[in-house]
Design a protein around this nucleic acid. Structure first.
Lengths: 223, 223, 223, 223
DNA sequence: CATGAATGAGGTTTCATTCAT
DNA sequence: CATGAATGAAACCTCATTCAT
């Protein structure tokens, strides 16, 4: 009987039911999004779960329907922050073409588009601040994101060196030197931005890239 | 004076008193030193004042003889961390000689000797983590340390450009790019160091400097 | 009736419906049965309604269709636990025959058959544990079960004394002394049973009865 | 100097200092005493630590200076409740003389004087109510108190039987039967006392003892 | 000066209860 | 009828801060 009844009014029922269901499915990421913002703003320990819940538009107790504890929420925040990073890395890896320098340039700007310029850029600050209190999470992030990103850059640098496009220098440290300004950019965004000059990220990246490729020295041929 | 007064008292008493006196003067910096370590390790909110006191070898109550509150202790930690930085900057500024590149090299290594390689290097991590919760402190650090350090680099860069030694590039961003790997170095030391490869700071700095001056590109003269 | 009506519907539907209908009537006692077990196991306060519901195979919300609150459920548990006790008392009262001692023996073993050996024996433990938190319930139990049981025993004892079969002793205390080992038996079953020796209830009752009638002393006739 | 000063006013100083010290030493048992009362009254789960603290005249936080958790407090309550029981058992064991029946009588009344009639009598109720939630504690109580008490009675009964004073009956069950009314007495005191008749413990014990020794049956010699 | 016992505000977590579906 | 997502009061526990000694 019930089967019959719903059969004649399928859409109406479906429509009223969906919001509830969609809500439920969306909750976890609504909550981790709110948590990410607050954790980055105030730090993990200082953030009250009640505020996280409020920012996500639910009550304190609701949080516990989806996460076992504050720590579990933290882990979920990081995990959820990792996926897009990996996806972005994959994409950029795939779209390579042209010289090593050009590929490098693409990577820097692509990273900015998909990570550095979004709210996800808070994750690194979070990891830096909390890594000592959550070693497993830090390890996880290290293995999944940092090592992977470094591998990407290593490939590019080694190719550039092999092709004679780049000088033969210590690749690992070079990777550090490439990454550092990117991290500075996001750390700045979430830490000291409010107390100083505003830098334009795009031109910052441009100069970083220029400096990286050409160095400070004026070469013999003029510029 | 006190030493004289107690001079008639049995040795045992004298012995217990003198160290206490000497202790008394040293207390504040013993406490801030302990606090710096723990704040950097665990974060401000997660650090218990009892642990700070214990690490400094005193009782909880004693802390309040020297600092009005946990926040006051935090400010003292930062302030005390700033002085050596400024002193170091002064020294390096004074000892300039030779080319701009050489001066730059001296600055990087001097910073490592006096700041980056010491426990003081935890201060930046602390500032990054807590700046949003202590804006005045962050502002203070920004004005006293960051701006001053940047001014130093700006002078060097501008001199190099004026002398025709360096290319004419955007100085402010170049400063960022120079500083970033230094900060990465210390951030790494206090955050993710435990979960990955150990880099040798000296050679790291060397490569950083090399890359900074010459860039990635192989120049025409075949270097 | 319902069975007939659904008779034209496919079997699958009929099968799901009929049990549901039968279920519906049985629900309350299924729920109180589950609740009794859990309340006895864990105590009232420590038992979660969700667990009660789960043990009864329904959802949390369903419980509230049958009971207004956790307290109401508790009262229902006790009330439902009382009825069989009363019925048992009636039966035993009716089946009297023979000497007072024999009647007493019948009562003890009958009680074990119908109460002490069943899950209903948890009720006394529950009453003991929770009486201070639910005075009305305790009073109710006291009046309906305890007083009634005592009245039963009083009748038997008084008859025995009147007939010259028993000594003339303080009847009320004698009642206590008769009941105590029975309660110990059930309390043990639901409390400390797991940490000690297992006693056989039947032989326990036998010895209790024997001791009750004859006492410790060896009588002159050499028994 | 300080040593000298205190030397001339020894008692005054001692007297003002002592209260604080005595306070601190007395705190744990003040707290367990308060906790025992409330746990027995309301049950473990329903008792708020704030109320325990309040009854002991201190604040919530003070409790945690002496006990790690609510559970630790519970364990301390039981442990502290066990010691006097053991001590009492020792004493009664030592003061034996006369017939087995007389010894038995002494034990019953001694127990009432030192345990059953004091606040310690709440411990058994607590154990009964919470044993399932704290199996280790229950086991501990079982081993230290129950087994020990039974051993005491076993000795007496076996001696009585050996001497021909008592009939040869199942000793273990006899022990149960002796203990049961005692436990009923204390359980009653802490559970249902408020809803019924008040029994005089002394005469209750008297009848219990009388019944135990002589049984219900009127013996031939007309007693 | 130094201590550490005491306090109580505040945060995390649980769970009885409600209600839209 | 039945469900289970959502709520928020209430309890445990921590720890910055105070103060008597």
């Amino acid at each position: 009987m019930n089967t019959l009844a719903t059969h004649s009014v399928p859409l109406a029922n479906a429509e009223t039911r969906v919001p509830r269901r969609r809500r439920k499915d969306a909750r976890p990421s609504e909550l981790t999004a709110a948590a990410l913002e607050l954790f980055v703003e105030r730090g993990f320990a200082t953030t009250r779960l009640e505020d996280v819940a409020a920012r996500a538009g639910v009550s304190k107790g609701t949080l516990y329907l989806y996460f076992d504890s504050k720590e579990a929420l933290f882990k979920a925040v990081i995990e959820e922050g990792i996926v897009p990073t990996l996806v972005a890395a994959e994409q950029q890896l795939a779209e390579h073409s042209g010289s090593a320098a050009e590929l490098l340039r693409k990577l820097l700007f692509g990273w900015w588009q998909q990570i550095g310029g979004t709210r996800l850029a808070g994750v690194p600050k979070l990891i830096i601040s909390e890594s000592r209190n959550f070693p497993e999470v830090a390890q996880y992030y290290h293995d999944k994101v940092i090592l992977r990103g470094r591998a990407l850059l290593r490939t590019v640098l080694q190719r550039g060196i092999a092709d004679g496009e780049f000088r033969a220098l210590d690749v690992e440290t070079a990777i550090d030197v490439i990454i550092a300004p990117l991290l500075m950019l996001v750390i700045w965004r979430f830490s000291l931005c409010f107390c100083g000059q505003e830098t334009d990220p795009e031109s910052y990246l441009e100069t970083h890239f220029d400096l990286l490729v050409h160095g400070l020295h004026r070469s013999q041929d003029g510029q």
